[in-house]
Nucleic acid binder design. Structure first.
Length: 772
RNA sequence: GCCCGGGUGGCGCAACUGGUACCCGCGCAGCCUUGAGGUGGCUGUGGGAGCAAUCCCGUGGAGGUUCGAGUCCUCUCCCGGGCACCA
């Protein structure tokens, strides 16, 4: 180890702190602004390699932009509410608040070792009352404008975490967090009406320069289907005109002639009424009820995995196809979902694979017919409609460690937003954490007393807390004005700094956080609270760092890479540069961690230090003149262009490769006793974003003043070499190469090329077409 | 099943609008350094034939366009991700 990384890195960070290098005055600066954002971490207590990949590599971009004269805002904070703190409280009796703050403190230290150029003066911590006050204020705004509402709904319930989950937090029928199969419950809960924005969220995507795969994932999640609603009248107890209408949604109203039966989802409201005999007497009500109960027991996953069609005919009722006037049977079957469309379909076995399967099993007619045109469809009462797959965002959580929902209920049970003067609506501390399925806040006497005191006898508090995704849906607005006590952010600064230029994060957030934050922005835009309706201009989903065995890191596999160990052994700069080198950052892909790889990055940095050692002792007064004429100077300008271009594209892997190639050239030229002090300085400036600590040290070693991180990115012109190498191809194959002065004409060059034996042989007497 | 990505040496990868395929690094081999080992340094490293200059083959597979294809077109196989009994 040629240099003492511990000492150098410590000194460099001290120097930056003294110079207060990364503090930014957001209201000042004529330079072009650049808001660079990375998803803020959850304070789990340990900074893992994924955090390094997220922050250290993005920091390179921040440093490069600053050197290029941009006014760069690169903030950091903590997404501090959430289940793990509470689980620690349940398990070890810890105070969730203390547990969280202890972890934040520890992670601040770990983040500091990264050498990232965060502006810590604008840190945001979502569990601070000064932050969640505004989460509550924004929720109240949404409530006032009908975008937050309380209603009973079938919700996903995690029996282990004892809380409801958002649709997005259920993956393949299990809790995204703990893997427990979710249950369905009917509960009265708070929803944010993201469905109101389904279309805006969809069309907004067209304006964003995101990778197609991210846009496609969001489009699929929103799931727009255009079709029509049709009404089928029914006959109860075989008495004409006795029934109610069944509304169905179809994307193929033109196939209505082929509709030979109706299917209701077991959850359909009509089914319940029929079983209970309120509308008509079914001759097989018991059988129907059994089927409905059986369906309830299945998880959504089981329901979708079992492709074998099941169902029961409703005996005693039938429907009329409005196009054919034929009487057709009604079934209930679990292949129709209560949560989509109207919960009822017209089955067209001739045109739908699922309907065909069902029809074959139940011996129902399959009718190939003519197609209906729109005149016919509207003639039978069809209306064009659009359906979305996306559901409203369920934000109630029966957990403690979250932002209290700022709602109180009057004696009639009607919800009211807590007025702004009572915000922050503090999270009570006299709470029993044991999960009972009831909200822990219900055990707080202080909360009840508080409500009575402020609002009067008979008023009651809301006991649920908000999904933490609400906290993180606007944190990037707060970063701009963290100390504001009068508003959630500054209108002026939002106008100057939004939208965020580049946002990077994990691909798992594509249909969660990223969608929620876009919804928030659009809703706040419509309330005239923010100046733009899309928060993020560019978005990068970063890849995953795998274990050395190529498998996803997990404690059970024992392949977890602890960055602290490598920082200890090789230094933060080596870890940073390895992460930059591992692959292209702008394409999400998984890369295995390589022990030897990190070691080799340290070797590279040691060689750089040695090169500087030689360069700094340079004493030849003519060295500069010599250097300017050298091939090395040409190489430096070429490398500069490469590192600059690659940096713009987030391709740090090839940027580092170019620096390595340049170092090889430096070493070759040093062997010839050419020592280039100026060249070394340029090299160090280019190295600075990647290895900021070592670059700072070597910058001083070379006798420079100030910080290398305050230097402007060089914009050297490319010096053309006087000779160029020309490759000669015949029939698309390389036949040789010649070195010619760059001003050589075409005819001359052709004549030279023909002198190569392989060229004339390959041409075999034929005339050369052209020179390329 | 549908929709996105992506398949290049033993490995991670590189190759701007079609123009020297494999930059840079890992690994491996040989040599130097060392008492030995490691570290460090130098050289070599896609496959095949040849003493050699050199030649042939080579970017998942099969065709095609082109003077020229990793790159463009058609079909196909495999891997990763998203959605999925969504009517």
């Amino acid at each position: 180890m040629a240099y003492d990384h511990k000492e150098i890195e410590k000194l460099a960070r001290e120097k930056w702190a003294v110079l207060d290098l990364y503090k930014i005055d957001l209201s000042a600066g004529e330079e072009e602004r650049y808001y660079l954002l990375v998803e803020f971490p959850y304070p789990s207590g340990d900074l893992h390699i994924g955090h390094w990949y997220a922050f250290a590599v993005t920091d390179m971009y921040a440093r490069m932009l600053r050197a290029k004269g941009k006014n760069v805002f690169f903030p950091i904070g903590f997404d501090a509410f959430g289940l793990p703190a509470e689980n620690a409280a349940i398990k070890n009796g810890a105070d969730p608040k203390e547990w969280t703050y202890k972890n934040i403190e520890r992670m601040r230290g770990q983040l500091a070792t990264m050498g990232a150029s965060f502006d810590w003066s604008k840190e945001v911590v979502t569990c601070e009352p000064s932050y969640y006050q505004w989460t509550q204020w924004l929720f109240a705004k949404l409530f006032e404008h009908g975008l937050a509402e309380r209603r009973e709904a079938a919700v996903k319930w995690c029996p282990k975490d004892q809380t409801v989950l958002a649709n997005e937090q259920v993956v393949d029928g299990v809790c995204e967090r703990c893997g427990t199969p979710v249950e369905e419950k009917r509960l009265t809960q708070w929803f944010l009406k993201i469905t109101n924005y389904a279309d805006k969220l969809l069309t907004g995507l067209d304006t964003l320069p995101w990778r197609e795969e991210i846009k496609e994932a969001q489009r699929a999640w929103i799931g727009k289907s255009e079709g029509a609603k049709l009404r089928f009248s029914t006959r109860f107890n075989l008495v004409p005109n006795d029934g109610v209408d069944i509304e169905v949604f179809t994307t193929r109203p033109d196939t209505v002639f082929g509709a030979t039966y109706i299917v209701l989802a077991p959850e359909h409201a009509l089914v319940k009424n029929l079983i209970e005999g309120r509308l008509a007497s079914l001759t097989n009500a018991g059988e129907i009820e059994k089927y409905v109960e059986a369906t309830k027991k299945k998880t959504e996953k089981e329901r979708s995995e079992n492709k074998e069609k099941t169902g029961v005919k409703l005996k005693g009722v039938s429907a009329i196809n409005p196009a054919t006037k034929e009487e057709i049977p009604i079934f209930i079957a679990d292949y129709v979902l209560g949560s989509y469309g109207t919960g009822a379909i017209m089955a067209v076995p001739a045109h739908d694979e699922r309907d065909r399967e069902f029809a074959e099993k139940f011996n129902l007619p399959i009718l190939e017919r003519e197609f209906a045109n729109w005149d016919t469809i509207s003639g039978i009462g069809g209306e064009r409609t659009t359906q979305y797959r996306i559901r409203d965002w369920l934000v109630s959580r029966q957990r403690y460690w979250g932002c209290p929902i700022p709602i109180v209920y009057d004696p009639e049970g009607k919800p009211h937003a807590i007025p702004a003067e009572h915000l922050p609506w503090l999270l009570p501390t006299d709470v029993d954490f044991k999960p009972t399925g009831k909200a822990p806040l219900a055990s707080s006497q202080e909360l009840k007393d508080r409500v009575t005191k402020i609002f009067g006898e008979g008023w009651t508090p809301e006991y649920d807390t908000l999904d933490t995704f609400v906290d993180s849906s606007w944190y990037f607005l707060r970063y701009l004005d963290t100390k504001n006590t009068n508003n959630f952010s500054s209108a002026e600064l939002m106008k100057k700094w939004l939208p965020i230029n580049r946002y990077s994060g994990g691909s798992e957030h594509t249909t969660m956080h990223l969608l929620y934050a876009r919804f928030f922005m659009k809703a706040l835009y419509d309330l005239a609270l923010v100046p733009v309706d899309e928060p993020f201009n560019e978005r990068f989903n970063r890849g995953l760092i795998m274990g050395p065995d190529g498998a996803k890191m997990s404690k059970s596999k024992g392949n977890v890479v602890n960055p602290d160990e490598f920082v200890e052994k090789y230094g933060a700069d080596a870890v940073r540069i390895y992460l930059a080198f591992i692959g292209p950052y702008n394409e999400p892909r998984s890369c295995p961690w390589s022990m030897e790889g990190v070691a080799s990055m340290r070797k590279f940095l040691d060689r750089v230090a040695r090169m500087v050692e030689l360069a700094k002792n340079q004493s030849d007064p003519d060295a500069f003149k010599y250097f300017m004429k050298s091939n090395l100077f040409v190489s430096i300008t070429r490398t500069l262009k490469k590192v600059t271009d690659d940096g713009n594209r987030f391709k740090f892997n090839t940027g580092v490769a170019a620096l390595m190639a340049l170092l090889n050239e430096f070493e070759d030229s040093q062997n010839k006793n050419i020592v280039e002090h100026n060249g070394a300085c340029m090299f160090i400036i280019m190295l600075a974003p990647f290895a900021p600590h070592l670059a700072e040290h070597l910058w001083e070693e070379l006798g420079n003043h100030g910080s290398v991180h305050q230097q402007s990115w060089p914009t050297g012109a490319i010096i053309a070499s006087s000779e160029v190498e020309v490759v000669v191809q015949v029939a698309g194959r390389r036949r040789g190469s010649i070195r010619l002065p760059s001003e050589t004409g075409e005819a001359e060059a052709l004549a030279e090329a023909l002198k190569i034996p392989a060229v004339s042989a390959a041409l075999a007497g034929k005339e050369p077409k052209r020179i390329i």
